[in-house]
């Protein structure tokens, strides 16, 4: 569907909205850790850069040449590098926020659900529920 940009498109579409969500709603928690999150993401990306080609060499998986950009960096597919950076950035951000909540004995899951509803209401205005309804639904999950 997206030709040579398919891998890149999937990577961006599955990670950027979630990264945006976390950094929008939990910026006060994440902002002070920005340098560490960036440093760790780069470290993890470098590790992925070293080990991921072995997956291809060991025939664990393979890519369709028609769906990747066919740009390689020292034999590593460019999209794999982007994948490692964005996925680790997302996971490190998620773990950092979750630890913050757990330290305060608060529920990160409840906060995630509440904020997800806020986003849904923004995208689909017809889903108008009152604040108390959303809170009730969040409570019902637990």
């Amino acid at each position: 569907m997206f030709g040579h940009g398919t891998y890149l498109f999937y990577t961006l579409i599955f990670t950027l909205p979630l990264i945006g969500f976390l950094w929008f709603f939990y910026r006060p928690i994440l902002r002070p850790c920005l340098k560490k999150i960036l440093g760790l993401s780069l470290l993890a990306t470098f590790y992925g850069f070293l080990v991921w080609p072995y997956g291809l060499k060991m025939s664990c998986w393979g890519y369709s040449e028609a769906k990747i950009l066919n740009i390689t960096l020292f034999g590593v597919v460019l999209e794999d590098i982007v994948w490692w950076f964005l996925v680790t950035w997302l996971l490190i951000s998620f773990v950092t926020v979750s630890l913050h909540f757990e330290n305060r004995k608060q529920s990160f899951l409840a906060s995630l659900i509440k904020n997800a509803f806020r986003v849904l209401r923004l995208i689909f205005p017809f889903l108008k529920t009152s604040r108390s309804q959303t809170d009730g639904l969040t409570l019902a999950v637990f």
């Binding site: 569907m1 891998y7 999937y10 998986w61 890519y63 369709s64 769906k67």
Partner: peptide
């Protein structure tokens, strides 16, 4: 989705 659209596959 990636497997379904044949972006990547597993041996």
């Amino acid at each position: 989705l990636s497997v379904g659209t044949k972006l990547w596959w597993y041996n």
